[in-house]
């Protein structure tokens, strides 16, 4: 699965033309810190979110993603540091919804108000033409339930309404906090497509998640945080190259012979039965070495450790709330 993902990404990056002329909208977070009493929620975070790509904001529960996003929107006051959107503070924007569209908590709605009215007051507040309300309702597929009270909405419908709110002002910058929460696979795919399309249109897109697998499919760039600190800030291929170790699995009836041969070429080899795990060379190279000596190969596969593993390893020290592993009889881990 990951192999396929990576191939897709490689293709995407090959075609990706960075389009960042000066002055284009972006988010600049500098030394951002937020403490709640004794608790340091965000600790000197610095990163930028560039236009034309999806930036994944990844971190385990309690890492400080939502807090950072609230500070981007000027809702929480930073203890130290600053954040600008489009070169100025969010709170200085004349019509913020037309500059930045955000989904924070989708359930933060008055249950008695209809979806249409919720969008209407938002539109009115920023002088967004009211026909946009119908457009975004249509866009997220809520037209039929537009006049129902949102209290009756399912989790997924609420999430869709939250996305409609984010897109209401056709903003060049879009910030989505865990947009796939509560969505079914169809909905997840829809959000993923949406995020990609927004980026392809040249918008600046920041999407948070605590699922590496989700980010692998959506993001071009990754900012990983744990315990309020930035742990990684790099492109997805860089992250994969750096953090997802790979090896080549070979199955051959003459495994011992193969082991000696590969060791002779300075490769790191481990053998179990007729299976070899080779590190330090790609599958083609390993195949050529062994095939050149006439060794019969039953299997030759590039195995990547999953990105989820890489993410877990990276954030292992910074997981805020970790559940104890269930202790099964005989389980040793």
């Amino acid at each position: 699965m990951y192999a396929a993902t990576i191939r897709r990404q490689a293709r995407r990056h090959a075609h990706h033309t960075p389009s960042a002329p000066p002055g284009v909208p972006l988010i600049a977070v500098r030394g951002l810190t937020k403490t709640y009493g004794q608790k340091v929620a965000v600790d000197g975070v610095t990163f930028t979110v560039e236009p034309g790509r999806v930036t994944g904001f990844l971190g385990p529960n309690g890492a400080g993603k939502s807090t950072t996003m609230r500070m981007i929107l000027g809702l929480d006051r930073p203890t130290a540091g600053s954040v600008t959107v489009n070169g100025h503070r969010y709170t200085d924007a004349p019509a913020p919804l037309r500059e930045v569209g955000a989904l924070l908590e989708a359930r933060a709605l008055h249950p008695g108000r209809t979806a249409r009215n919720h969008l209407r007051w938002l539109a009115v507040s920023n002088r967004i033409p009211e026909r946009r309300v119908d457009e975004v309702l249509d866009l997220v597929g809520l037209t039929e339930v537009a006049d129902q009270r949102v209290g009756k909405f399912s989790l997924g419908m609420g999430q869709r309404l939250g996305i409609a709110v984010a897109l209401l002002g056709e903003p060049p910058v879009v910030v989505l906090d865990e947009p796939v929460n509560g969505l079914d696979p169809e909905g997840i795919r829809w959000v993923r497509t949406l995020a990609r399309q927004l980026a392809e249109q040249g918008r600046t897109v920041l999407v948070s998640s605590h699922l590496m697998s989700e980010m692998a499919l959506t993001a071009d760039h990754l900012v990983v945080i744990g315990r309020g600190r930035v742990l990684a800030d790099c492109s997805m291929p860089e992250f994969i190259a750096e953090h997802a170790a790979s090896h080549v699995r070979v199955r051959t009836p003459r495994a011992a012979e193969g082991e000696t041969l590969l060791r002779g070429h300075g490769l790191d080899v481990a053998r179990t039965g007729d299976e070899l795990r080779v590190q330090g060379l790609d599958a083609a190279g390993v195949g050529e070495l062994l095939g050149g000596q006439g060794l019969l190969l039953h299997e030759l596969t590039l195995v990547r450790s999953s990105l989820e593993d890489a993410f877990m390893t990276l954030t292992a020290d910074s997981v805020e709330y970790s559940a104890a592993m269930p202790q099964e009889a005989g389980a040793t881990r």
Partner: peptide, 11 residues
Amino acid sequence: GMIRATLAASP
């Protein structure tokens, strides 16, 4: 929690 939507729209 709608106060956040309100203040995001009108800071």
